[in-house]
Write a protein that binds this DNA or RNA. Structure first.
Lengths: 204, 204
DNA sequence: ACCTGAACACCGTTCAAGT
DNA sequence: ACCTGAACACCGTTCAAGT
């Protein structure tokens, strides 16, 4: 058992985060508990509350890391091909692959409800906003004469859509199996949406 | 306190379902517990396990009712206008309105993870499939020369998309407020997707 | 100063025992 | 036959007490 001052506050935080992530990866976020994390790091449960406010706070920090990893994947594939449609299709492919490769951590980002009184901090919301901002940048070459506000809306509609396919597939609510089918659906949504978005006929 | 044989099995089931639904509506599905339901119907907690297998089973039946109400709303607005695009826009509008009017019960359908060993029965999966089938029917007039399989895929992509906007909006992950904005995004997704879907140019 | 460990107020689920 | 209520194995969170 760990003794006092065996680890600095920073070390304790890092150990706690890593242990909690491992539990989520292996057992899903329903399987996460303060007592399990404490046992995994060799401290008693009270110790967790010295380094995190509560479980919500711990989950928030795990989710932040997950969003950072997703963001890294999405920025790796820069739009060097030059084709805007290809770039957005790539982002979609990356999103689905990320969710499929790490379903439990990805699901915790979007399925965990923070308790009502907890205010999600701005730096966290920024990590979500950043993803939509990338889609916006990808859309810009396709939206020459449109006001920025329309591009923002389009990014939200399109990426909300990609997200929906992703989450329905992972929860077996789409009647399909296999990551390839999910990729097909996503590519179909993106390419058809973009065809509509770039066509010259009016919506009405 | 209720005494033995005060209620038939059927009455008990109905009381339990209704009490549980009220708790979910008021407190969200995180607030649902077997003990709260038991107290609400005036029985002890053990009684719940005489009429439902466990909490998952109870939730499954509440979700079934929610899906039935959603289906009723979606069938009320029959495609009597004759315009296929309008019809699908209407379905989207109904979906968003339903989720917004009854967020806690709607969220439980799509956010509750059933425990791994529990097999979701076919009659339940059918209620999900039915929703996608309606979208398929709506798409058919727009897909004259396409094989059925493509229409099925399109329905999943499009409705997965609508669902994604809906769930991100309800969980405050879209950076928007107000049901009108969500409706705008949904209409934008559907109309652009359909423009792409019905255009004659090839995807590639 | 740092961490413990016991306490409090909850959970889901089971099942012998009571009427 | 029907329901109880106590038990079991868990929870999140707090905080006086120990070293």
């Amino acid at each position: 058992m760990a003794r006092r001052s065996d680890h600095s506050r920073e070390e304790l935080r890092e150990m706690t985060l890593t242990a909690a992530e491992n539990i989520v990866v292996e057992q899903g976020y329903e399987g996460l508990s303060a007592r399990k994390v404490a046992t995994a790091i060799g401290y008693t449960v009270g110790t967790l509350y010295l380094v995190f406010e509560n479980l919500d706070d711990l989950i928030l920090h795990i989710n932040a890391r997950t969003l950072d990893r997703l963001h890294a994947r999405m920025t790796e594939s820069q739009a060097n091909s030059g084709d805007a449609v290809d770039y957005l299709l790539q982002l979609g492919e990356i999103y689905i692959r990320f969710a499929n490769d790490d379903p439990h951590r990805w699901a915790m980002v979007f399925e965990h409800r923070f308790s009502e009184d907890r205010v999600v901090p701005a730096w966290y919301q920024e990590k979500i906003a950043r993803m939509f901002a990338m889609v916006e940048v990808g859309l810009e070459p396709l939206a020459k004469n449109r006001p920025q506000q329309e591009v923002t809306q389009a990014a939200r509609a399109l990426w909300g859509g990609v997200h929906g396919i992703c989450i329905l597939a992972l929860t077996d609510n789409l009647g399909i199996v296999g990551v390839d089918s999910v990729q097909d659906l996503t590519q179909s949504l993106i390419s058809n949406y973009l065809k509509g978005f770039t066509s010259h006929s009016s919506v009405q």
